[in-house]
Structure formats: structure tokens, C-alpha cells
Design a protein around this nucleic acid. Structure first.
Lengths: 250, 250
DNA sequence: GATCTGCCTTGATACAGATCAACCAAGGAA
DNA sequence: TTCCTTGGTTGATCTGTATCAAGGCAGATC
């Protein structure tokens, strides 16, 4: 139990768990919640499978254990906007609300754990550090959403693509050992061109064109369609339009 | 104290306080927090005055008592995107974080109350219903941010303007007595054309043109530049691109 | 091996909204 | 009164991205 105590400490690794992500080790947290006997069941989804349909009851709380899910809003005429990425340790659900406004879909193979609703609410009251952590996570997501609003409202297509690549690269890099040498970074895109387009408020053609342009300009290298190498992180960051001093590894 | 107990009940009026907004009466909440001796001081700002500069320390928690503040992100070359509206009872601040990524500016004359940081955190732990309410508010803001992401990414200029007018009208209507007859609604725009543009990811010229177009088409009536009348809420909702069955008064 | 299907690329063209620029109206100061 | 400022409107033109359309490639299926 002791390794789980410091659940809020940033990028902490318990030393036993292979998953390490963002502010907390997801498995540790899940384990702790399981020990508190709050987890009702685990459930697996295949890539592409729908977790929640828009309009479904949302009377539950669940958390991503492994894999990636996306959160999408759709307009009547079919225009779609992705509004969130759910990564390991992220929560979905809104007990007390009757309906969801968006679809949740598995992008990769996905494992989620579902909580017992009533005990969860009691736990919220009785276990302050969990309640506090939920608030912190929600505030983080709000900050991320606000950064996306800037991207969606004011950035050019090239800046949007660069920003997305930078974000994925950063997340990917944070999973590996932090290295002094950030010369080159390589990763696989977890999204199709269409999903990227939905994320960025573009069409898939524009995404494809801008990826080609970045390749032509030497900002990225493509091996196949999904495998991306960034020879110079600095050069990529130049393209994002963001303040340059932001620092790549947070 | 008893009137403040049910602090989470939706759109509850304490019967003594002239301000009624969203899920809770802001003054009541502020009063309760004051009784808990958590409020450090109140402070007034004039319209246009900056509350927090981007990059300032954010080591505090504050809440809007009266007036409206905006939350804005700015890029190096001056492109600006509004990412939030702070209304009475909304909170800002993120104790534990060193710097803010955005400007907070008073749009109208503004009164805020600042909390004692340390006791606030203790209160978070010791007063579950306040912690829970903070989480609910943050989740509401996240939902609102996600709706804006759809607007910014996928809506046309006309749909953006209509959506903004609908949102302001809805908020304004919720401040008055709920009425069966929603035939016509009248209100004053709290934003300049430029602020509207920053909110919607447009230029002020496009905002002006689309306002003129909506006027020409009889969707709205303008008296001066700011005073708006909506003869038919249904007709306006048709223009927003949103699902029509959403219901105007939530 | 042939065909199919999902995902991606590239080209030609259209158009919504940005940009540049002139002007207007109201309010305040001199 | 006149000048000046602030916020808003409208017109002409430009341009970035959408749209429409035609392939291409790799893995799956027969």
C-alpha cells in the first residue's frame, strides 16, 4: 500500500508497474481503487469499438487502464469534432447526468474498469485525496481543452499538424526514459488521417497535404504512413506557433 | 446558515439574494465561504482592467462575485483566442501551479473574492460538499469547453454567431423568471465585436457582416450596436447547427 | 495469382472568411 | 463649435482550406 500513497506526485513510478503515464502510474491507481473494492468489473474493447453511444445513459464512472479512447461530438449533418483523448488513468462518466453528448470510441485495443457508482460517491466524500486527484485531473483536461481551443480557432493547418505531432511525441517521450539528447524522436501515429482531421478541425485531404509538406521540408520523415521520425524537435516546435520557451519535456 | 445548506441544488434561490445564476446562487455561496472564514479579501476591477497577466503566479484561488471576466490566450504574433467566460460563482486559480497560460480580464465591472490558500486546501479535504461542488463546476466547464471545440472546429461563421447569441440569450433568460412564453427575448451584448471575434475564432469584420446578415434575414433585431432582440428563439436555434431538440431552457 | 477494401495521396477548382481600406456615428475634450 | 477617439459597418480583393475527383498501395480474402 505504501507505494500507492503518494498518488499525486508527478510522473511517479512505483517501480513494479510497466505503465507510466502523466501525473500518475495508472495501474497503481487502479490497484489502489481495486483494493478499496470500488471496481465493479474490467472490460475489453477492440480497436474501433464504441464504448458509449451519444445519448446513452452516463450513470457510471469508468477509467482507462490500457489503450486509447477518443471522445467525439457529431452534428446532425455528420460534421465531426474530436474533443478529447482518453489515455490510461483518465476517467469518463458523470453520475447524476442522464445523457452523454458525445461518443466514446476505442482507437486502439482498450481495457477499462468500471466503478460501483454509489460507493464511488461515498468514496469521493470519505477519501479526500482521491477527490482532490479527480479535481486536479479535470483541471488538467480543462487546460488541455483550452489549448485545443486556441489551436482550433487561430492556428493554420500546418501549425495544427505540427502541434499534434509535438503533443504525441511529447507524450511518447515521457513514457520512455527522460534523455538529455532529444535530437531525434520516433513514434507510431495512433490515429488515422481522418481521426487527425477530426481532432484538428480539418479535412483528411488537408492533413495529408500538410504531412507531405512537412516531409518535403524535412521537418519529419515518414516510414510507411504511420511511422514518424522527427529529426529535430526544435525545428518542429518552430512550426507549431507556440511560444518557443515552453520546454519540450514538462 | 440553513438556506445555504443545499448549495448544490440546481438554480436554487435563497430568496434573499438578488443574484441567481446557474447551479447556485453566487452570493450565498460566497457568504457561506465567508462564514467559514476562508475569504481573504474582496476586490473590484473596472471594465477592461486586467485581473491576471499571462505568466503571473497563479498561487491563489478566487471567485467571481459580480460581473464578467474573460480568459484569453495569445500567440506570439498577436493572434488571440478567448477560451473562457467567468461568470458569477466561477472560480479561477490553481494553487500549486506556478504560472498561468492565459490573461484574465474584466469585461464588465467586476468584483472578485480571494481565498486564503492554505485554509482553502484544508477545507477541500474537510468539507466534502465544497470539494464535490468544485469538481462539478469544473466538469461543467469542461463540457462547455468541448462544445466550444465543436463550434471552433466545425461551424460556419453564421452558425458561430447564432450559437453565441443563443448562449447569451439562454444565460440571460435563466436570470429572469422562467416564462412559458419564449416568443421574444431581449438583451444587451456584454461583448464588443472584437471580443465576439476572439471568442468565435473569427475577425471582427466577419462578425459585423454576419450580424448584419442575421438582421437582414429577420433572425435578430438590433437597436444600436449592442441591444439585441430575438423575435423567435426557434428561428435562431435553426441557425446554430445544433440538435434542435436540445431545449432552450435547461 | 486476382480482386477487393481500407487508407492514403495528389490534382483541379470553388468558396468562405481574411485582409486591406474607406467610411460612419456617437461621445468626450478643448 | 470643431476635433479626436472608439467601436462599428461595408466594399474590393486575396488566399487558405474545402470540395470534388482520380488514382495508388498494402494487406486481406477468395
Amino acid at each position: 500500500m505504501s507505494v500507492h500513497r503518494d498518488i499525486r506526485s508527478p510522473t511517479q513510478d512505483c517501480g513494479e508497474c510497466p505503465i507510466r503515464h502523466r501525473a500518475v502510474c495508472a495501474r497503481c491507481e487502479t490497484d489502489e481503487l481495486a483494493q478499496l473494492e470500488q471496481i465493479k468489473y474490467y472490460r475489453s474493447y477492440q480497436a474501433g469499438q464504441t464504448v458509449i453511444w451519444s445519448g446513452d445513459k452516463m450513470d457510471f464512472v469508468a477509467s482507462v487502464v490500457t489503450g486509447i479512447a477518443t471522445l467525439t461530438q457529431t452534428m446532425e449533418d455528420g460534421r465531426r469534432q474530436m474533443v478529447g483523448l482518453l489515455l490510461p488513468s483518465d476517467f469518463v462518466g458523470r453520475p447524476g447526468r442522464s445523457a452523454a453528448a458525445y461518443d466514446v470510441t476505442a482507437t486502439t485495443d482498450l481495457v477499462m474498469c468500471c466503478f460501483r457508482r454509489k460507493p464511488f460517491e461515498e468514496m469521493m466524500a470519505s477519501t479526500p485525496h482521491i477527490a482532490h486527484r479527480l479535481l486536479e485531473m479535470t483541471l488538467d483536461e480543462l487546460d488541455a481543452a483550452r489549448e485545443w481551443m486556441l489551436l482550433l480557432g487561430r492556428k493554420t493547418a500546418r501549425e495544427k499538424i505540427s502541434s499534434l505531432l509535438a503533443i504525441i511525441a511529447r507524450r511518447d517521450a515521457s513514457l520512455k526514459e527522460p534523455r538529455a539528447d532529444l535530437g531525434a524522436i520516433t513514434f507510431d501515429l495512433p490515429l488515422t488521417r481522418e481521426e487527425m482531421a477530426d481532432y484538428l478541425g480539418l479535412t483528411l485531404e488537408t492533413v495529408s497535404r500538410q504531412m507531405s509538406a512537412l516531409k518535403r521540408d524535412g521537418i519529419i520523415t515518414l516510414d510507411g504512413k504511420r511511422h514518424v521520425t522527427i529529426p529535430s524537435v526544435d525545428a518542429l516546435m518552430e512550426e507549431t506557433g507556440d511560444d518557443s520557451d515552453g520546454g519540450f519535456l514538462v
